[in-house]
């Protein structure tokens, strides 16, 4: 059995990588991929705690499905925004991304 501390450690590492990338990176697409890493870390933590619980029940599974749904929606919206910005010739650098407004 994997110690729970290892699972929490790997989740903390992935969340740290994701947050650091969101802060440091300037490319819009890369920032969205970093957010995807954070979602993945939360799923791993969810499954890790699920594995250690004695009687988790089906609600834990519904919770994981909710995280997955948000992550999938984020990827789909990322693709839509990417195609839109590429077609309009927008720059992906968020420092000069001033045209992308409602």
């Amino acid at each position: 059995m994997i110690p729970l501390l290892y699972i929490i450690g790997i989740c903390a590492a992935m969340v740290s990588i994701g947050i650091a990338a969101v802060i440091i990176e300037k490319n819009f697409i890369t920032i969205m991929l970093a957010v995807e890493l954070i979602f993945m870390a939360s799923t791993i933590a969810f499954v890790g705690f699920y594995s250690y619980s004695s009687a988790p029940g089906p609600w834990a599974f519904i919770g994981i499905f909710s995280v997955w749904s948000v992550a999938a929606v984020e990827i789909i919206s990322l693709i839509a925004i990417y195609v839109y910005m590429k077609a309009r010739g927008f720059n992906f650098d968020i420092g000069i991304l001033t045209k992308f407004k409602w």
Binding site: I2, P3, Y6, I10, A13, M14, I17, G18, A21, I24, E25, I29, T30, L33, A34, L37
Partner: peptide
């Protein structure tokens, strides 16, 4: 535990390498 460590290292390396790639395809 050994397998978990190896997979974790692979996951962290690939997670970090997302931000070092120049092309979005490789990321």
């Amino acid at each position: 535990v050994e397998l978990f460590s190896i997979v974790s290292v692979v996951m962290i390396i690939s997670g970090i390498s997302i931000f070092y790639q120049k092309s979005i395809m490789r990321a």
